[in-house]
Amino acid sequence: MTATRQTPEPAGQVADAVRGNWVDRLAPAPARPYLRLSRADRPIGTWLLLLPCWWGVGLAAAADPAGAGWFDLWIVLGCGIGAWLMRGAGCTWNDITDRDIDAQVTRTRSRPIPSGQVRVRQAAAWMAAQAGIAFLILLTFNMAAILLGIASLALVAIYPFAKRFTWWPQIFLGLAFNWGALLAWTAHTGSLGWPAVLLYAAGIAWTLFYDTIYAHQDKEDDALIGVKSTARLFGSATPAWLWGFLVVTVALMGLAVVLAMPGGAARIVALAGVAGFGAHLVWQLRQLRIDDPDVCLRLFRANRDAGLIPALFLASSLFL
Score class of each variant (00 low, 15 high):
1 M>V: 10
3 A>M: 07
10 P>T: 10
11 A>H: 14
12 G>A: 06
13 Q>T: 03
23 V>D: 01
27 A>R: 06
29 A>P: 08
41 D>N: 11
55 W>C: 00
57 V>E: 01
58 G>E: 00
69 G>S: 07
70 W>L: 14
74 W>V: 06
78 G>M: 04
79 C>Y: 11
80 G>H: 13
88 G>L: 01
92 T>Q: 08
96 I>K: 09
104 Q>P: 00
106 T>I: 11
107 R>P: 06
107 R>Q: 03
108 T>Q: 09
111 R>A: 08
119 R>L: 12
119 R>C: 05
132 G>Q: 11
134 A>Y: 09
136 L>V: 14
141 F>H: 05
145 A>E: 03
146 I>H: 07
147 L>C: 13
153 L>S: 10
156 V>R: 00
165 F>L: 11
171 I>M: 15
190 G>W: 01
196 A>N: 06
196 A>T: 07
197 V>K: 10
208 L>N: 06
208 L>I: 09
208 L>V: 03
209 F>I: 07
211 D>W: 13
212 T>D: 03
213 I>P: 12
216 H>V: 08
217 Q>I: 04
218 D>A: 07
219 K>Q: 15
222 D>V: 15
224 L>R: 15
237 A>W: 08
239 P>V: 00
239 P>D: 03
239 P>I: 01
249 T>Y: 05
251 A>D: 01
253 M>P: 04
253 M>L: 15
254 G>S: 08
260 A>E: 09
262 P>T: 06
268 I>L: 14
268 I>H: 07
269 V>S: 00
270 A>F: 02
290 I>S: 14
292 D>L: 05
295 V>I: 12
307 G>M: 08
311 A>M: 01
315 A>W: 02
317 S>G: 07
